[in-house]
Write a protein that binds this DNA or RNA. Structure first.
Lengths: 336, 336
DNA sequence: CTGAAAGCGCTTACAG
DNA sequence: CTGAAAGCGCTTACAG
């Protein structure tokens, strides 16, 4: 049962006895806390190194009320389309956690069930959490805040007391729209599937900001924000073609993928007849004869930064409430 | 520092005092272990339910030497191509873990560094591990075996003492090849990128078995097992076209993707001039005008099963050393 | 600088 | 069936 190791693991008392010192001294040598003589410390450290002593994490947890674990909350994804973002982010979190001797739990939620989060918190299994995928008024974030658990969100939430780290989606989209206008494009349509998640609101906001900056008026018939399935994307594309729009800006790689397939199927030339761009790059966009203009973010780094900030926050260091990370506008053939 | 909750959490002693019983009794009521009167048990359980008592996981860990944590080891992936498999598998593991009140740590490794695994084991932070992506002679598996940590591999290893769960890649590939032959195809080429990982060896073995079953002799000039980059895939495809091969069987969705793009670029008609199939389905294959014949596995379920077996093994139940999961042969246009 | 002791919050033989 | 006590393996005031 449990761990099956035959030999009982070494304890702090074993090394104390062996060295003729007290357990407290060994503890101090290891933790570096409390006063201790250099000679003693070195002797202990050397013994530990040679004999491979590793403190029991559960005992440390109990004594210090800290686990050296963090959790990352991942959405349950129906389509695999969202996976690369969250999973790349998770890789970044893991890397930073490891580098700081923290371990990472991951819990998957459907965004409604609090249970998995609750368990972790009620049993005190983690010191803090990273929430990925956020909503403007975020249910989970509200819960965590109430529980006074250290946490940071990847993505933005309304509540400005909450520590958040995000790609600068607004800035990036505004910039992309500006650049497109500067290339002589007249009207840019916006194709999105939902406004629920904040990331999508940011993109849309950036789109509007780009229009504003160019001094142009947005035309509502060019804006789609609820394209929930392929059929709707197809309809939108048809309408936009009929209205002779210049350029289609897609909320993300997934929508963009559908748009391009749709255009391909109808034999529409990109960028000849219509230009296409995506607010988010992914490998999905590499599958077409025409390369696609898009925004690129360093998602691993987003994960690392979120984790770094969480750890700082856990350990009582000063952290920025809001961090926005940089982006790249990648111009390709699809908007030539 | 650590957990920042203001009110100290309720302990087993608090509820004991409140109820006028001993802490042992409360413990027994909760765990269901040891004899306890029905009335007493119900009283305790009801109190706990009403007042929201949750045992401190660290204290439980320490007392029972078990953590109720498992870890899943994920490969560090350079390309995102492998991600869907491992991550879907992880979702399955997580689901099963949650359902059994276990939490899941994830650690990413490059396949060489033992450190992240060691830390987990040395600090006794998990009760068992799931190893995804295996090699015939698996370094990590050897280490875990030596350490006598309960673990299961997703994918096969040579050592037949090790608990393994896998898709039946051999059976699936053999079946696919058989079916293709039965459709009148004369020669099937095999295109793979590596024979390092066992999954690829299995696929290749299945391919050979399919030939054997059909009573045909494999032709070595139709077999590629080290197509490490797009250029090599392109060369292989060219050679195979020159040799007028009937059908190209791709080791995985990634290779298949490259093969199809290559054929598209050269204007080769699929399935008219050459047929194409993949030993592994993924969404990647949905991006072409022609739908692709492939093998489909239930990867979530693979994760669930691996986790189920690990938990059984941790808890001293009898488990099968080797579990092979079912597959579907999906015939599509690409081999019509 | 170092040690003895109490404490972290559970579990589990041992008595009764 | 129930309780008192010891123990899990650390940490950390408190003395000295």
């Amino acid at each position: 049962m449990g761990s099956v190791n035959l030999e009982k693991a070494m304890t702090i008392h074993d090394v104390a006895r062996e060295l003729g010192v007290s357990a407290s001294t060994v503890s101090r040598a290891i933790s570096g806390k409390g006063r201790i003589g250099n000679a003693t410390r070195d002797r202990v450290l050397q013994y530990i190194e040679e004999h491979g002593f590793y403190p029991n994490a559960a005992a440390q947890s109990l004594a210090q009320s800290r686990t050296n674990n963090i959790a990352i909350i991942l959405p349950e994804v129906k389509t695999l389309a969202d996976m690369p973002f969250f999973h790349t982010c998770m890789y970044g979190v893991e890397e930073m956690a490891q580098a700081n001797d923290y371990d990472m739990l991951v819990v998957i939620t459907n965004g409604r069930e609090l249970r998995p989060l609750e368990r972790l918190i009620q049993n005190r299994k983690v010191d803090g959490m990273i929430l990925t995928r956020t909503y403007a008024d975020d249910f989970f974030a509200r819960y965590l805040k109430k529980k006074q658990i250290p946490f940071v969100t990847v993505g933005q939430v309304e509540d400005q007391d909450i520590i958040q780290v995000d790609n600068d989606n607004i800035g990036a989209c505004r910039e992309l729209v500006s650049v497109l206008f500067s290339k002589g494009i007249k009207q840019i349509a916006y194709l999105g599937c939902s406004m629920e998640q904040t990331v999508n609101r940011c993109r849309y906001e950036g789109y509007l900001a780009g229009y504003a900056k160019a001094g142009k008026a947005v035309q509502s018939e060019f804006i789609y924000t609820a394209l929930n399935n392929e059929a709707m994307v197809e309809m939108a594309v048809d309408e936009l073609l009929k209205n002779q729009v210049d350029c289609m800006l897609c909320q993300d790689d997934y929508i963009c993928d559908e748009v391009i397939r749709c255009l391909e199927k109808e034999g529409v030339d990109v960028p000849g007849q219509v230009k296409v761009a995506s607010c988010h790059y992914s490998r999905l966009l590499d599958h077409y004869p025409v390369t696609v203009t898009s925004l690129k973010f360093d998602i691993m780094d987003l994960g690392r930064r979120a984790c770094r900030i969480l750890l700082d926050s856990i350990n009582g260091r000063e952290v920025p409430i809001r961090t926005l990370l940089d982006y790249e506008v990648i111009l390709k053939e699809s908007t030539k």
